[in-house]
Each structure stands twice: as C-alpha cells, then as structure tokens.
C-alpha cells in the first residue's frame, strides 16, 4: 500500500506511544532497581545515585537465587514429563486401537474445561495425605501430564501421512520404534510448542505452590517474590525491583531467542 509522508509519521507516532506504554513498566522497574531505596521513598526518580547495590543486596540478603533455581528445576521436570506422557497418550489415540478409545478421548477433552483452581481443595488434601507437602514433588506430580498437551499432540500426530505408518508396518517397526523414530521427529514443532507452553505454565504457577510450600528451600520464584514483597516491612523498593528484574531477565532472553519458533507454534495451535 502506498503511504503518504504524514500518514507514515502518524503511524510511527502511534507505534512509539504504544511501545512506550508496553515497555514503560520494564524501564521503570529496571531504573528504580538501580536507585537507592531512600531516593525512591522521597520520590526523586531522577536521581543520579546509580549502582547495582540493590542487586548485590538481593542476592546476598534474600533467597532470590534459590527461588530461581527451584523454579528452573520444577519447570524443567514438568516440561520433560509432559512431553513424554502427553506424546505417549496422544500416540495411543492416533495409532492404537482399543475398546473405548473415542470415549476416553472425549473424557480427556472434557477435563480441559475444568480449571485447576476449582479443584485445589481436594488436591491439597491428597498431597497432604501422600506426604508431598513442601517438596519439589508437590509442584511436579499433579502436572505430569496435561489434557491440553494430549489434545494438541493428537491433532499434530494426525497430520502424519498414513503412508508413513504403512511403510513402517512393511519394515516391521513396532509401536515403540514408530513412536520414537517417526512420530516424535515428525511432530517436533508441536513438541517444541508444548515444551515452551508447559515450561511457562509451570513457571507462572502461583496459587498451588503458595498453598503447598513453606520454606525457601523449595519455594519457586512467583511465591518467592510474594514472600519478599510481604516480608519487607519498610518497603525496600529498590531491592524488590532488583529481584523482579532478576526474575524477568531469563524469560525475556528465552522469549527473544525463541520468538521465531514460538510464534509459528502458537499460531499452529491457535488455528487447529
């Protein structure tokens, strides 16, 4: 389309305004993380006392690095488990025939409608009885598989041309071999999407870890930040902002590096 000069300028103006609104909170958070809390409390945001002291304090005085580590462990375990269990489950729904297959699939589909938030009461009782409270396991075991993941991978596996399965049958591959050598490589984009999705989902868990973890040893970042924020009786804003920045930087990096793949994968999921 042809754009006139004024049209173009206007477009850039709106783009810049929107960009400022979007990254404003990031920049403000980052900037204040560099300022002494005393200056922030006085409201002098244009201070020149810039330092990384808040970061040093956050790392030394709080368990922020431990929280990060906990979150990484929990999210990676959840992601790996979901990739395995969801792909196996999806495989069964596409390539295996057994009694009640369609019925089971609809049951699993139906569970996608049930929000985990509405089931925390019995689940809390369950993990307490299983003696899982305050441990990594309590944040991984309930999420070893996901109905959404099975559904998404099933859609993706169904795109595999029947000729491939026929060729594999002729070659004499059994289901394990076909699953491992053909299905997984073929659906790698969907697997990547599910990996990103399940990692982020787990990383962003808030309510469940808040109910089930009580010590810094196992607490993930989301609840770690909550802990910091509520513990700081004197509102140490500089340090809190520094902690938030420490938490957000790894995900931002992952996002920008993986953006290309992620966008494609998301759209694939969205249009299927």
């Amino acid at each position: 389309m042809m754009l006139t000069k004024t049209h173009k300028t206007l477009r850039y103006l709106v783009l810049v305004i929107m960009a400022i609104i979007i990254i404003g909170p990031f920049i403000l958070g980052f900037w204040t993380s560099l300022l002494p809390t005393a200056d922030i409390a006085k409201g002098t945001l244009f201070s020149t006392h810039i330092s990384f002291q808040n970061y040093v304090d956050a790392v030394q005085q709080t368990a922020i690095m431990r929280y990060l580590l906990n979150s990484f462990v929990i999210s990676l375990l959840t992601m790996a488990a979901q990739l395995l269990f969801c792909s196996l489950g999806a495989y069964a729904f596409v390539f295996l025939s057994f009694k009640g297959r369609d019925f089971l699939f609809y049951v699993i589909l139906a569970t996608m409608m049930l929000p985990f938030e509405a089931e925390v009461i019995p689940n809390f009782a369950t993990v307490r009885q299983l003696n899982l409270l305050n441990h990594y396991a309590v944040m991984v075991i309930p999420f070893l598989t996901s109905a959404f993941g099975i559904f998404m991978l099933r859609q993706s596996f169904r795109q595999i041309p029947p000729e491939l399965k026929e060729a594999a049958d002729v070659e004499g591959l059994n289901h394990w071999q076909f699953y491992w050598r053909v299905t997984l490589p073929y659906a790698r984009i969907s697997l990547f999407t599910l990996a990103a999705y399940s990692f982020l989902e787990s990383w962003n868990q808030y309510l469940w870890p808040m109910l089930t973890t009580f010590s810094d040893k196992f607490r993930p970042v989301q609840d770690g930040l909550r802990q910091l924020q509520s513990q700081e009786t004197f509102n140490n804003w500089g340090m809190i902002q520094a902690s938030a920045v420490i938490v957000v930087i790894p995900t931002l990096i992952v996002l920008f590096v993986g953006q290309h793949y992620f966008k494609d994968g998301l759209n694939e999921g969205a249009t299927k």
Binding site: I23, N204, Y206, T251
Partner: peptide, 18 residues
C-alpha cells in the same frame, strides 16, 4: 509488543504496584 509474554504474574504485579 510481544515482550510482556516473558513477564510472570508476580513480576507484573510488582512493577505495577510501584
């Protein structure tokens, strides 16, 4: 524009709380 996808709920809350 896609940046806030990398923001988790507590980071967003802290930024906006301030």
């Amino acid at each position: 524009f896609s940046a806030t996808m990398g923001v988790s709920v507590s980071v967003a809350a802290i930024f906006w709380l301030f």
